[in-house]
Design a protein around this nucleic acid. Sequence first.
DNA 1: TACGCTCGTTCATCAACCCGAACAATAGTA
DNA 2: TACTATTGTTCGGGTTGATGAACGAGCGTA
Lengths: 176, 176
Amino acid sequence: MIAAAIQRERSRAGKSLSALAAEAGIAKSTLSQLEAGNGNPSVETLWALAAALDVPLSLLFETEAPATKLVRAGEGDVLESEQSDFSAVLLSRCPPNVRRDVYRVVMQPGEVRRAQPHPRGTVEHMLVCAGQMRVGPAGQEEVLLAGDYYSYPGDHPHSYEALQPDTLFLMVMEAP
Amino acid sequence: MIAAAIQRERSRAGKSLSALAAEAGIAKSTLSQLEAGNGNPSVETLWALAAALDVPLSLLFETEAPATKLVRAGEGDVLESEQSDFSAVLLSRCPPNVRRDVYRVVMQPGEVRRAQPHPRGTVEHMLVCAGQMRVGPAGQEEVLLAGDYYSYPGDHPHSYEALQPDTLFLMVMEAP
DNA sequence: TACGCTCGTTCATCAACCCGAACAATAGTA
DNA sequence: TACTATTGTTCGGGTTGATGAACGAGCGTA
């Protein structure tokens, strides 16, 4: 569990095992064994790693089942409205001080598109307009039909895959 | 630093060193040395401690000089007012989803009243109306005169002591 | 006073973490 | 091909954390 956390943070930082070990001032053999899951590191070692990775120490303990949110078509809290023929569902409140870029994407079935992790704190919002797709962070992919909404952290490895021709979806990339 | 955190949490839990070591399944000698600041514990040891203390592991890394706030009579930001003979000082903004119980207390000099720690997240607000008192978390007691305001975490050991007869104060107990 | 219990500390012994060096694998370059 | 520079792995050995027993101190009771 802690092994996975170290690997995760190291790969996100884009550093090699040797480089990280050097920066942290620990032997690369130590780091190798830690990432292999063998061993029970001391606090000092973890401190050095966290410092070199520039992350809070507590992050190395998080199992981090990343926070995803799935709202199926027709689900979700409907916002009240004065007008009768108007219906809105709040999918995600916008946190302050974030930038949200919107993309309109058409995708064809075929190969699975794997995305490199984006910078820390990035969140992706997917809203399928037409077709069908499979998307999500590694191990938490979901099959979305038209109208479904799915948001997940973009700073983890994730993948897109269209399951029907001309699958159309909206992607909102949220950056801190 | 980590030594202080362990001691802090242990005293909060009201457990003895021996008892905690037994519950955590570690030797009490180990715990003794850790609290003495000697040594560099392994993750496994800390995990056992955190589990026995029933706190998240990350809490054992926080320096946590508990957040206290002292506003002397006449100090503090005065809120603007339309009316001339009106003055208000914002002592503490109310966080959302908390309950604030208000107590009016009269106290006589004499013995020091030591309070058992309240549940985690509790905050106490003291506002002296008349008299003089000494109050605060252990090691951070302050002498308050009439009009002084002092807030501090209530989930740590703390004490009250009146320094003048008929000391009157307002206490707001804030619970999450 | 003597006994029993719990408190927290100190001391040798064992296990383990951490280290450094040597190792195979891969990639880029002359 | 050979040389060089990376990658991450595996292997002894020294340092250190974790252990359990023994210790003195404090408290309540017979």
